[in-house]
Amino acid sequence: MSTLVTRPRARRHPAERRSWLLTVVVLLIVAYFLLPLWWLAVASTKSNSDLFGSFGLWFGSHFNLTRNLADVFTFADGVFLKWLRNTVVYAVSAAVGSALLSTTAGYALAKLRFGGRNLFFAIIMGAIMVPMTALAIPTYLLFAKMGLTNTPWAVILPSLVSPFGVYLMRVYAADAVDQSLLESARVDGAGEGRLFFTIALRLLAPGFVTVLLFQLVATWNNYFLPLIMLNSPEWYPLTVGLAQWQATAQGGTGAQALFSMVIAGSFVSILPLIIAFLFLQRYWQSGLAAGSVKQ
């Protein structure tokens, strides 16, 4: 750990003192961020009595992971599997839709000249600053008028476009697509459609993946929107279903037996996103970088 702060040309004594202090701070932070995850991994292997009876950061007397997983997937006729399927459908359609729409809109804002461009950008900024949660009630009323509450559309449609995604793609496109390249292709007679599909789209790929992942995570984890829009459990995503299990377990009256199942269910619900993130993290980082720094 001491190599952390020993940099070339730094004076020696203060550097060593700092390094000791810094190491402690780093260890505390690492504990703060990693121990809860470790706890979850360990707890999902525990039986219900071990959850209450054994130390949280180490395994209990029984290794109960398979039993817990079986409970998760078979409880109430396998409703968890339905929730998982719903979550995948909502998150994937929102992510793909949002990435496509953000890419075209971001490209248009950064690279095409047309009247009303600035007005459109102002609308996006407004949408970032007055986010959906604050407007949940009127959005619900709107969907109720259209007869779309308690259908998957109520979750997918509002997630189809993210103002943050459009903003990010605009910044990314401004940088990634060379204006002179576009101009010379235009002089050569390439149409705007061909310019976008053959030249720009490839250059915009990292931004596209960033928005895709961003919206995948946001929709996968969205709780408030599906909570207000859906009322039959068969349409629930994982978040709403798990929260309901947790509430039942917390409610007591013998339902505490559900706790080990809720914890294993939470563990299962996180895994797909961790895997997606690990595979695509290179893109994710470079895309986010553009959005926050350059503007």
Binding site: W39, N221, Y223, T239, L242, I263, S269, I270, L273
Partner: peptide, 14 residues
Amino acid sequence: VASTVASATMWYWL
């Protein structure tokens, strides 16, 4: 990437 709900079931215990 962990949802608030999953995090909450965790922190409820911690």
